[in-house]
Amino acid sequence: MLKDKIANAPSKLSVSYRVLLATVGGFIFTLIVTVFTPELFLWAFGWNKATSLMWMMLLSFGVYCGLVMWIIATRKLLKTSLILLLCGVALSFSFIQLQSHNAGKPAETEVTS
């Protein structure tokens, strides 16, 4: 019913939060994923970090797009927010750990592909 639809319409604050989370939060999360993955690949498989970083940057626009769509469309905003926050923090910590671990390793010979 239209009356119910109006009564249940999201508040301006809720919409603003959603948009902020999507644009700013989504960008930050994308950045974290973009820099975390090359460290992971270097540590786990020994893949050249610059190459992985380049691939992740190429994909980052798609990742960001997907995140924005998810955040705007989700019916469970709180759950989504918590997932993003927890994963973001976890990946950030892992990134910092992996980065210092990888930096401690001896320099690699150049990998060209």
Binding site: V35, P38, E39, K49, A50, T51, M57, S60, E110
Partner: peptide
């Protein structure tokens, strides 16, 4: 991309030059 994701390059490599060097000579 290198402008929009410059933060990624900075976070991953302190030095941009090092990034390009790692990519190819």
């Amino acid at each position: 991309m290198l402008m929009y994701m410059s933060s990624a390059v900075s976070l991953s490599y302190g030095d941009r030059g090092e990034f390009f060097n790692d990519l190819q000579s």
